[in-house]
């Protein structure tokens, strides 16, 4: 075991963590907003709107993320003159923005399906009760439907977040030096794949572990109504002790 080598590799890989987190953070935030809008539209809108949206969701869920990244980064390069004319070439020239665009569109499609499931699980009685109280459509969504749907969709959305963190590794294929990119660089310089894999793997596991813990905390916070009230809980504990 070569401790010095491990230390050196680990420190170099840590340099890629900010970029990994940036890619995941930006695309997940924008993707979440898009997913909410898409899910509400898929749930309510007329077939004329729903059909193209379904096509979008099927396209991004049915093809590999790598194809999506290549389609945006290399594929759209074919239309460089018209993109330049539209003034958006700066966006499609940079691998950074292309990856963020691909990740965002990808997570929005998966997220929309997950949140749509959440919206479907909201009991009809809750909505009827809100309407009976005279709530407006907006208030109904803000206070009743969305909180219930989020709570229901949270575990599945958590998986999606972890998949996205793993998905950022594909950015290395279009030359971005995030954790996997740096790992690949070190492997091709030193051919010590196992050591580098252990270090990079540890970094991803730590990231994912932190995310899992944060989500578990959020889930706990969002479901007080599913736990017995504190008074009842302490009573049962006393009962068990007795």
């Amino acid at each position: 075991m070569d401790i010095a080598f491990f230390q050196d590799v680990f420190l170099r890989l840590l340099g890629g963590v900010p970029l990994t987190l940036q890619l995941a953070g930006i695309s997940l935030s924008i993707g979440f907003v898009l997913a909410v809008v898409l899910a509400i539209a898929l749930h309510n809108a007329s077939p004329l709107v729903v059909l193209p949206l379904r096509g979008y969701v099927a396209l991004f869920r049915g093809t590999p993320l790598l194809v999506q990244i290549f389609l945006i980064y290399y594929g759209l390069g074919q239309f460089r003159p018209s993109l330049q004319a539209m003034g958006v070439w700066w966006l499609f020239r940079e691998p950074y923005w292309c990856v963020i665009l691909a990740l965002t569109l990808n997570t929005a499609a998966y997220g929309a399906e997950i949140l749509r499931g959440g919206l479907q699980s909201v009991p009809a009685g809750q909505i009827e009760a809100a309407l009976a109280c005279g709530m407006s459509r907006g208030l109904l969504y803000r206070r009743i439907v969305l909180p219930l749907a989020f709570r229901q969709a949270l575990p599945a959305y958590g998986n999606e977040i972890i998949l996205m963190v793993k998905g950022t590794s594909l950015a290395s294929i279009v030359t971005l030096l995030e954790v996997t990119g740096i790992a690949h660089q070190i492997i091709s310089q030193t051919y010590r794949a196992i050591e580098v894999f252990i270090c990079a793997g540890a970094i991803y596991l730590i990231l994912n572990f932190a995310i899992t813990r944060a989500l578990a905390w959020l889930e706990h916070r969002l479901s007080p109504h599913l736990r017995p009230p504190p008074a009842a809980r302490s009573a049962t504990q006393k009962g068990e002790a007795a």
């Binding site: 793993k166 996997t180 492997i187 794949a193 894999f197 990079a200 596991l205 572990f209």
Partner: peptide
Amino acid sequence: GVPDLLTIYLLY
């Protein structure tokens, strides 16, 4: 928990 790309690099 580890990106699949990393697993592929490891094996290759």
